[in-house]
């Protein structure tokens, strides 16, 4: 097995630059944890509000390291057969018939052959560890699964191996970078947390968010981007059911560019409000609280906002 250190970066700054090139602006702690994940070969558990770039981090890591990304989207009721492996019984049946047709009746060898790797259907988790090339494994929204599923992950996450009763232990050929995301909708088990590095990603500060917005929508000018993140911050401060995330800021920036707006006044805001606020009750609240504060075409970007 290739050790985790094989081609891993030497400093957190290196990781940060690589992520930057993959168009992900990482802050200090994100870069550091991403670096440690590669150095120590530990899975990273990423938590934070929806839409702050948890999944994006895994994608960026995949781009930055040139590894393929394998994604396991979690949902309630996800089980081993769908996440780890399953025997391809159709193929096994055909195998039996083929043998019968060929007049082969040696049972012992038949059983051996029927449970050979070629009859195994690899699901994302097994695929990730048996891949020849090192990969990035994203286990998305693990909080949606049952606690039993977490228990199943433990062997994989701590030793990077999977035990299949008929085949024995399959050890990882290469060491994947594992990113596990959670929206914090329930407490994860201690056992899982113990095996992971922990990273909390929060909404970025306005400067960084403005940078992110400009990175993804280069057409927006700096002043407008700054104004935009200020308004989004105002909206987030309200008590909303679903506060706007970074991806919504980016969508909004795109909308504004399409509308050809050069400032956010009350009119533009009301027009494009639905890009950042997605809930009926929230819309009313935002329209009432934020819109009037914007004024009508007042020059934006006054120092300090």
């Amino acid at each position: 097995m290739t050790g985790p250190e094989a081609d891993s970066p030497q400093t957190p700054t290196e990781v940060r630059d690589a992520l930057g090139e993959a168009s992900y602006l990482a802050d200090e702690s994100v870069a550091l944890v991403a670096f440690l994940a590669q150095r120590l070969g530990r899975p990273v558990l990423v938590e934070g509000p929806a839409g702050v770039g948890k999944t994006e981090l895994a994608k960026a890591l995949s781009r930055a390291t040139g590894r393929e990304m394998i994604r396991l989207q979690c949902y309630e009721g996800l089980d081993e057969a769908k996440s780890l492996y399953e025997w391809n019984y159709r193929k096994q049946l055909l195998g039996i018939q083929a043998r019968a047709a060929a007049g082969d009746s040696d049972e012992a060898s038949a059983l051996d052959e029927l449970f050979a790797p070629e009859y195994l259907l690899e699901r994302p988790l097994l695929e990730a560890i048996s891949s020849e090339e090192p990969v990035v494994l994203l286990i998305d929204e693990i909080d949606k699964t049952d606690q039993e599923f977490e228990a199943m992950l433990l062997e994989l996450l701590s030793d990077f191996q999977v035990t299949i009763p008929e085949l024995g232990r399959i050890e990882a050929a290469t060491h994947p970078i594992v990113v596990i995301t959670s929206n914090d909708s329930r407490e994860l088990t201690e056992a899982l947390k113990r095996r992971c590095l922990y990273l909390w990603i929060d909404y970025p500060d306005p400067e960084r968010e403005a940078e992110i917005v400009r990175l993804h929508e280069p057409g927006i000018d700096e002043r407008l981007a700054r104004r935009l993140v200020e308004v989004v911050a105002m909206v987030r401060d309200l008590d909303l059911r679903k506060p706007p995330s970074i991806s919504e800021s980016i969508d909004w920036a795109r909308t504004l560019v399409l509308l050809g707006a050069d400032d956010i006044d009350e009119g533009t805001f009301r027009e494009s409000l639905s890009t950042i606020v997605k809930h009926r009750a929230d819309l009313d609240l935002v329209a009432e609280k934020v819109a009037p504060a914007l004024g009508r075409g007042e020059p934006a970007g006054s120092p300090g906002g």
Partner: peptide, 29 residues
């Protein structure tokens, strides 16, 4: 884990030191 993490980052920089230990030791918000 924390001590391994520190070994790989070098522990001269305060912010890095804190984040490295936090990532390995503090597992929830």
């Amino acid at each position: 884990d924390a001590s391994n993490a520190l070994e790989s980052i070098g522990w001269e920089d305060e912010e890095g030191f804190r984040e490295a230990v936090a990532a390995t030791v503090a597992k929830s918000r």
